[in-house]
Design a protein around this nucleic acid. Structure first.
Length: 289
DNA sequence: CACCAGGCGATCT
DNA sequence: AGATCGCATGGT
């Protein structure tokens, strides 16, 4: 890959294992808007990034090398060799070939911990378009302006001090329903733990147990936060779609979640999170926009 | 109208 | 440990 700055934009050429549509639409994040085919705005780390891809060229608008090095390189996980990961998974699991082939441009975004936690608490028993809508309203209502692109305003997900001002009833009026008390409980814990500070140097199991002390965080949400917000790549969230696809590919019958998790751990090991995301998007493909 | 959505907690046995 | 329900809201 090569990077050059031009007219206030960044142009990445010969980009490998990168498809902006797949990266954003695969279900790992909720804070983005599609402008056109292969053209999006994603909001992360206090910035609204306008990004567009043509073949293996990616344009990041209105940014520079300094911001790329401090934010986007990490966010898009550019230092990880996905070719190697995909090869490892396919060599070990013939059954993954079709999913990886179809969704070969997925990357696991390194998202903000606090936003990831609250977003996935909201996600339970909801469809992705509605989750996106709620994340956007919380941000617009309580977050700072991140940027204006084509005349449209984009708002940051609120910081902890802003989140602390939101009441349970406020959350209810933002259509979070029965999740409102869960969100307040999570925010109280984040304050107590110092957000990410409370999770440095914890083992996978320690971090998972700690997350699950929050009301509304069960096994699945905890695994999503571990994978998307804390960088534990072995995390393997099992939801309805993963259950379906794993049963269809491997078990050929109704199988309990625990058994699917055990199997994934044994089969995919450290790369469980990547396998899970190829499978999830593959399974959900064509069903919901 | 019923049923489901990137589930979880409470309450049974 | 395992099975069943209710839960807010929106979509099909």
């Amino acid at each position: 890959m090569r990077i050059e700055e031009k007219n206030g934009n960044l142009i990445l050429t010969k980009v490998k294992d990168f498809n902006i549509e797949q990266i954003l639409e695969c279900g790992q994040c909720f804070h983005f808007v599609k402008l056109n085919e292969m053209e999006y705005v994603t909001v992360a780390y206090d910035r609204a990034l306008h990004i567009k891809q043509e073949a293996d060229t990616v344009i990041l608008y209105n940014t520079d090398m300094k911001e790329y090095d401090s934010i986007w390189k990490h966010y898009f996980d550019m230092d990880t060799d996905y070719g190697k990961i995909k090869q490892y998974l396919m060599d070990n699991c013939e059954e993954l070939k079709e999913a990886i082939k179809q969704k070969s441009g997925i990357r696991i975004l390194r998202q903000d911990f606090t936003e990831t936690l609250l977003s996935f608490i909201i996600s339970q028993n909801k469809q992705i378009p509605h989750i996106k809508q709620i994340v956007a309203s919380i941000s617009k209502e309580y977050g700072k302006l991140a940027g204006v692109i084509d005349g449209v305003e984009f708002y940051c997900f609120p910081k902890l001090d802003e989140l602390l001002k939101i009441s349970e009833d406020d959350f209810r009026s933002l259509k979070t329903g029965f999740r409102a008390p869960y969100l307040c409980d999570a925010i109280r814990h984040l304050k107590e733990w110092g957000e990410l500070e409370g999770f440095v140097q914890l083992s996978f199991e320690e971090a998972k147990s700690k997350l699950m002390t929050i009301k509304g965080v069960g096994d699945k949400v905890a695994n999503c936060v571990l994978l998307f917000g804390l960088g534990y790549t072995s995390a393997f969230p099992v939801d309805v779609w993963i259950k379906r696809i794993m049963e269809s590919i491997y078990f050929k019958e109704d199988t309990p979640k625990e058994k699917i998790m055990d199997y994934a751990k044994e089969r995919f090991g450290q790369f469980g999170g990547y396998a899970q995301q190829y499978l999830f998007y593959f399974a959900r493909d064509g069903k919901i926009s």
